[in-house]
């Protein structure tokens, strides 16, 4: 008493399960990537960090995206943090800093390993998009993916103006770091 419809459904289910297990479209995500910024001049070193950055990695398309809520960057000095958000980043207008790109190398995500990669994409900070090729490291271990990167951002490239009175205290190039563990997205 097995209907054709049931057979078709079963066949489809098996197909989808196979597709799913093949891992052709796996997605890794994280909500607590550490992102930090560092400005260094002979007069002052300024640092800030956040543990609230999000990241997405889609294995089928080799797409990587990392997004930092600008206001979640914490400074030692609260007044400095307020000025960072109000005067430089305009965080109410541009709440996120983001990088999205495609990994240039072919990686086998089913095997454990460590890879130096280059990600080509767009960095958008302060509402200004810049095409960037950013180096990073991807390590795959026991079904999790660890990403890390370090690169520099020139304030002028993102229309972040540094007034002359504080020019000696804020670097023209800000060092940016991000690292964290991504887990397989469970449906």
């Amino acid at each position: 008493m097995i209907s054709t419809k049931k057979i078709i459904s079963l066949v489809l289910i098996v197909l989808f399960v196979m597709l799913y297990l093949c891992g052709s479209a796996q997605t890794y995500v994280s909500k607590n990537i550490r992102a930090s910024i560092y400005s260094s001049t002979p007069l002052e070193d300024i640092k800030a960090a956040s543990d609230k950055a999000s990241a997405v990695l889609i294995t089928s398309t080799r797409e990587v995206a990392v997004q930092v809520p600008v206001k979640s960057l914490e400074f030692d000095r609260k007044l400095m943090q307020e000025h960072f958000n109000e005067n430089y980043m305009e965080s109410d207008k541009y709440p996120f800093a983001k990088f999205k790109g495609i990994i240039a190398e072919q990686l086998d995500f089913s095997k454990d390993g460590e890879y130096d990669v280059t990600v080509n994409g767009v960095l958008s900070v302060h509402g200004v998009d810049q095409k960037r090729s950013i180096p990073g490291k991807i390590s795959i271990k026991n079904g999790t993916v660890q990403i890390s990167t370090a690169f520099k951002v020139a304030c002028a490239n993102h229309k972040i103006k540094i007034p002359t009175v504080v020019f000696t205290k804020i670097a023209e190039q800000i060092s940016v770091k991000a690292e964290g563990k991504l887990n397989l997205l469970k449906q």
Partner: peptide, 23 residues
């Protein structure tokens, strides 16, 4: 749904991940 969700755009995933990340 599972399969289509895995192929979801990175952007919309990011958006949902950082939904409550802003103070």
């Amino acid at each position: 749904l599972t399969v289509t969700a895995s192929a979801q755009e990175a952007d919309s995933l990011l958006k949902s991940l950082s939904a409550d990340s802003l103070p």
